[in-house]
Simulated scan of single mutants.
Amino acid sequence: MLERKNRKNTTEVTFVLPAEHPCGEVSVVGDFNDWKPGAHPLAARKDGARAVTVTLPLEQRVHFRYLAHGDYWFDDHDADGHDGRNSYLHT
Rank of each mutant, 00 (worst) to 15 (best):
M1W: 11
M1Y: 11
M1C: 11
L2W: 02
L2D: 02
E3N: 05
E3T: 03
R4D: 04
R4Y: 10
K5A: 09
K5V: 08
N6H: 05
N6I: 01
R7N: 12
R7W: 07
K8V: 10
K8L: 10
K8I: 11
N9G: 00
N9D: 02
T11G: 03
T11M: 04
E12T: 09
E12P: 03
E12Y: 01
E12N: 07
V13S: 00
F15S: 01
F15L: 04
V16C: 02
V16I: 14
L17V: 05
P18F: 12
P18Q: 09
E20I: 02
H21C: 00
P22G: 01
C23A: 06
C23V: 05
C23Y: 03
E25R: 07
E25N: 11
V26L: 03
V26E: 07
V28D: 00
V29N: 04
V29M: 06
G30F: 02
G30S: 08
D31S: 09
F32C: 06
N33M: 02
N33C: 11
N33V: 05
N33G: 07
N33Q: 00
D34R: 12
W35G: 09
K36R: 00
K36Q: 05
P37F: 04
G38T: 03
G38R: 01
A39L: 04
A39Q: 10
A39M: 10
P41R: 03
P41W: 13
L42H: 07
A43K: 12
A43C: 09
A43R: 10
A44G: 02
A44W: 10
R45D: 13
K46R: 11
K46H: 11
K46C: 05
D47R: 14
G48I: 04
G48C: 06
A49V: 11
A49Q: 12
R50I: 12
A51K: 08
V52A: 06
V52P: 07
T53Y: 12
V54A: 09
V54C: 05
T55P: 09
T55W: 04
L56W: 01
E59T: 05
E59Y: 07
E59R: 13
E59L: 07
R61Y: 07
R61L: 13
R61G: 02
V62Q: 08
V62R: 08
V62S: 10
V62T: 14
H63P: 01
H63T: 10
F64I: 14
R65N: 14
Y66V: 11
Y66S: 10
L67S: 09
A68S: 15
A68G: 15
G70F: 11
D71R: 14
Y72K: 13
W73L: 15
F74E: 13
D75T: 14
D75N: 14
D76L: 08
H77Y: 14
H77R: 15
D78A: 08
D78V: 03
A79P: 03
A79Q: 02
A79G: 03
D80T: 08
D80H: 14
D80L: 14
G81A: 11
G81F: 13
G81L: 12
H82P: 05
G84T: 07
G84P: 07
G84D: 12
G84W: 13
R85G: 04
R85C: 01
R85V: 03
N86K: 05
N86C: 07
S87Y: 08
S87T: 06
S87K: 02
Y88Q: 01
H90R: 06
H90S: 01
H90M: 06
T91W: 00
T91N: 01
